[in-house]
Amino acid sequence: MATPHTRERLFLFGLLTPVTLLLGIFFLLPLAVIVIYSWLMPGLYGGVEWEFYHWNYGRLFGWADGVMEIYEPIYLKILLRSLSLAILTVLLTLVLCYPVAFWISRLSPRWQVVFLFLITLPFFTSLVVRLYAWLLILKPSGVLNSTLLGMGLISEPLEILFTRTAVVIGMAYVMIPFMFMPLFASIGNLDRSLLEASSDLGAGRVQTFFKVMLPQTMPGVIGGSVIVFIPSVGNFVVPDVLGGAKGLMIGNLVEQQFLSARNWPFGSALSVVIMAVVLGVMLIYVTRLVREGRAS
């Protein structure tokens, strides 16, 4: 019997089926493959042997036998370094984007459209090309150094290229639009009369910012941070171009395991660990902010 109720259910089911299939096949399935591979033995010439094998994780965390698999603390170090670079990227983009988002949100709608377009403009060019442009800017004889030298601000070229600084600059550059959009949405929705009320009640600019504006725009801050942090941790293109040996990140390591070393299980294990760590960090961060927002 096709009662209106069941018909409605069928309709909903019909709408949800494509997206369920899409996510199932192209998202959950690969994820499952990675998790399973991370517990299998690497084949001699790439590929896997279907045999339970926990040394992939042992090699990372220190229960390696020292014969077949060797424990290297460098992997964890690189993971930690990646996390810290990602956090730096989040902070840098946040500090850069917040005032700009505030400024643009106060413009007339016509100018807002213009500036939003300008912010998305970098997407029109390939990421790699844009990063090579940064290479030209940052290198010892590049635009930045020759300008600073010419102005007499420095006496010898700054060594920025192929350092972690270069990686953070590059990552911040890539991630700015992702931080900007949620921030802009949040700040644009901010009720101006709240700022006036705060000022009216005797709060100066700094107090108004920390007591009213920042808490009120917290959804944008959280959203932007999450969207920037997650891809930053696993990013391998930026450190590849700008990082050199000192700027190697966990993403590069995974890439090497899959493409050069042909050790898919170990690469999978690294990926699973990144995922677990990112998930953990995000859970702590978000729940704490939410709780703080509720308490204050």
């Binding site: 009216d200 009640l201 100066g204 808490p215 009120q216």
Partner: peptide
Amino acid sequence: FRRPVNTVFQSYALFSH
């Protein structure tokens, strides 16, 4: 913020957080 004058706003402007 220095004026010893306070306002009741039309929209109330309460701090929702």
